[in-house]
Nucleic acid binder design. Structure first.
Lengths: 224, 224
DNA sequence: ATCCAGTGAGTAAGCACTTACTTAGTGCAG
DNA sequence: CTGCACTAAGTAAGTGCTTACTCACTGGAT
């Protein structure tokens, strides 16, 4: 149990579970860099330091390997832990109805999560383009719930007169748009941040400010 | 010249130029649906109604075919015609400094362009993930100029006191984020629009309103 | 008779996946 | 503690099929 953690030599013989996990991680990295059809089982084997046959001993087919990755990513990588379940600053901000803090905390956590798992982000996009299961499940099990959660909060604040009367889902789409597009720029289009190089904190702050002003009752910008 | 346009029968014998163009269009569709490595030359040939050999008569290799697509897309599909060069409502709005109309017209045109060429959008994303040349060129030759253009307009309006003092590139990123994320939802993640089903007009109107309120001087949302 | 769009039948390399086999670790009877 | 049966980790060398790409050839229009 304990000393299985110490076995970090990738060249030697591993236990079945260890090797399986290692092949899985290698495959995540390769799939996220080159896509499903752009990655060969030979490459996965070589990068894992084993022969191709070992890949097929642990995963019956390339498709099964991909499915195992989905399962692992959906279970481990906090897809079932939502921001409002763990982020205490966010929970506190919601209790006292500090709208700015709510959006700021939510945004910052999202941006940091994106940055921490670029591989998962890329995998998600590949999955969406190639219409693999991951994209659909991610959308159904995660994104929809975010719309519900933020939408509910906004509706509550609308009833209290704090926020302008409009479809709250449009506000959520706008805010998520800012966050995800910003991350996408950093990950995919402008890795060197030549156009805009700001910290996650500045970004979250700015986006929260803008979305709140945009949704506030005070602003008299034409609604016609 | 003229009657070459009339030859629409895909089965018969075509002129070299016609066939080349047809193979190109077929390839665009297939690459955008399955990605580069997910599409075979055989598929392209069959879908074009010719033998594989014909594909290689017109394009020396699969890579050359892809490069030809990039060239065609960059030249034809309005990558060198910017919104502010053709959209008269936008030009007029800028003259009279009707900020809402500027963002509304810009946004609506963008959303409609995205919707009209889903294939190109998908190709762009595949290119970005697979780090093909298209993504880089598109970003350098198109996106950067949009940042410059909208940024310049916003800076001007800041000097006139109409817009709050903040980095105008953050405003541009927020606005483009709303637009592109919305299109991406419709194209990639939520094709059936189960979360949010609004017209391009409603979307452009809402986003323009929100970005302007968010950037206005009036709103007193916390800046700390 | 001469272009030239178009083909059938290839080739060599690469693909996912399998087989037949070897080696290293483990428990346990003597 | 040793030796041996048993199992699990690992491989080399394939399988048949697909891939990108080639070439000698054909038939219809000018």
């Amino acid at each position: 149990m304990i000393d299985s953690f110490l076995k970090c030599d990738h060249n030697g013989r591993m236990s079945g579970d260890q090797r399986r996990e290692q092949i899985l991680q290698t495959a995540v990295s390769l799939f996220s860099n080159r896509g499903f059809s752009g990655t060969t089982t030979k490459e996965i084997a070589t990068a894992s330091g084993v022969s191709e046959a070992m890949v097929f001993r642990h995963f019956a087919s390339k498709d099964v390997l991909f499915a195992a990755i989905l399962e692992a990513k959906m279970c481990n990588d906090g897809l079932h832990t939502f921001p409002w379940e763990t982020n205490e600053a966010l929970i506190a901000a919601m209790k006292v109805k500090d709208d700015f803090a709510v959006f700021y905390e939510f945004g910052k956590q999202a941006l940091e999560k994106h940055q921490a798992d670029i591989g998962f982000m890329r995998l998600l996009f590949y999955s969406a383009l190639e219409e693999h299961e991951l994209a659909e499940r991610f959308f159904g099990e995660f994104v929809k719930k975010i719309y519900d959660f933020l939408g509910d909060y906004l509706r509550e604040r609308q009833n209290e007169g704090a926020i302008r009367q409009m479809d709250p889902r449009i506000i959520v789409r706008s805010f998520l748009g800012m966050l995800i597009h910003h991350s996408l720029n950093n990950i995919l289009w402008d890795k060197k941040r030549s156009i805009l190089d700001i910290t996650n904190d500045t970004a979250a702050r700015s986006f929260a400010e803008m979305i709140l002003c945009g949704a506030s009752n005070e602003c008299k910008q034409r609604a016609a």
